[in-house]
């Protein structure tokens, strides 16, 4: 079953900017789906329309087969949103934020209280339940927005840059939380600027640029189309002279650091054989840039050229 089906979605703003140019997209139930795109590509508009925060110009959106126009209330009850920017009532108490959110979805107070306790504990905010939102740190506010989005236990959770501006530790705990709810069957749509996040978490991806979908496939298929990968090699001993190896592009960064562009047709063994033959010992290595980032740059650059 499809969790989200978008057909020929268009959005023209009042200033005549065409933010979406007939976008069609399908996200399967249970998927962990990345929606990527450069700033101004149309991601936020797309999410805005799906979550009823932006009026569409034309096209249709279905949530688990329920049309967002004709079955609005029911379709909306299936969606949860963690927005990019903080949109919490700062003078409200943490627990009240969650109870109110449940109330907007018609959830009884007793069930709301149970869920508030469950998600506040899961997201390590239980001790802060009586605090006002303005007293929370940025990381805590992020986690509170996660808890808020989960209060009606949506089947489709949309995360718009959910870990922007939070430290690594909190980001990892959020990843673990999101992976947990995805395992429980919740479909996740994630937009993020951290492409490492998308590569590690998501199974499928769509890249949007200039209001159009320019790629829509699985993350692994997308990465397999990369023809070249760049690696940074950290050497055990200084390398005086750069060796010449057929078909390989090597660059010297400093005496103990090399960069190499490896074609898909070459194996790592091929590289190491030649380096060993030139008495170069590699201590460690890493990708120069995240692979998805490389692909993303390639696709969005192509879109612009």
């Amino acid at each position: 079953m499809l969790a989200l089906e978008i057909r020929d979605l268009r959005k023209i703003y009042s200033n005549n900017v065409e933010a979406l140019k007939g976008v069609s997209l399908k996200v399967r139930e249970g998927d962990f789906f990345a929606l990527l795109g450069p700033n101004g590509a149309g991601k936020t508009t797309l999410i805005g329309i799906v979550t009823s925060l932006v009026n569409k110009t034309s096209g249709s959106v279905q949530i688990f087969g329920h049309d967002l126009d004709s079955q609005k209330s029911f379709a909306k009850s299936l969606i949860g949103l963690v927005p990019q920017e903080f949109n919490l009532a700062i003078f409200e108490k943490v627990e009240n934020i969650l109870l109110q959110q449940a109330g907007y979805y018609g959830i009884s107070r007793s069930l709301a209280k149970q869920r508030a306790e469950k998600y506040l504990k899961k997201l390590d905010l239980w001790e802060k339940r009586e605090s006002q939102v303005r007293e929370l740190s940025s990381g805590m506010k992020r986690r509170l927005m996660f808890a808020r989005a989960m209060m009606h236990e949506p089947k489709l959770l949309i995360l718009d840059e959910p870990t922007a501006g939070v430290d690594l530790e909190i980001r990892r705990s959020m990843w673990s939380f999101i992976q947990g709810i995805n395992r429980e069957g919740v479909t996740i749509i994630l937009t993020t600027h951290y492409l490492e996040e998308a590569e590690n978490l998501c199974r499928n991806v769509a890249i949007i640029d200039h209001g159009e979908i320019i790629a829509n496939t699985s993350v692994s298929d997308l990465l397999s189309t990369l023809q070249t990968e760049s690696f940074v090699l950290f050497l055990a001993q200084p390398c005086a002279e750069l060796p010449v190896i057929d078909d390989l592009v090597l660059r010297k960064i400093d005496d103990k650091t090399l960069e190499i562009d490896l074609k898909k047709t070459h194996s790592m063994n091929y590289v190491f054989e030649h380096l060993s033959a030139n008495n170069i010992v590699v201590n460690s290595m890493r990708n120069k840039v995240n692979r998805l980032e490389e692909m993303f740059m390639l696709l969005t650059k192509n879109g612009r050229s």
């Binding site: 925060l53 909306k76 907007y104 808020r148």
Partner: peptide
Amino acid sequence: LSKFIRNIEEVLVSPAT
């Protein structure tokens, strides 16, 4: 004020008519 701090979105995304 809800528009200004954007917590009106809490209600707008919900099924509340």
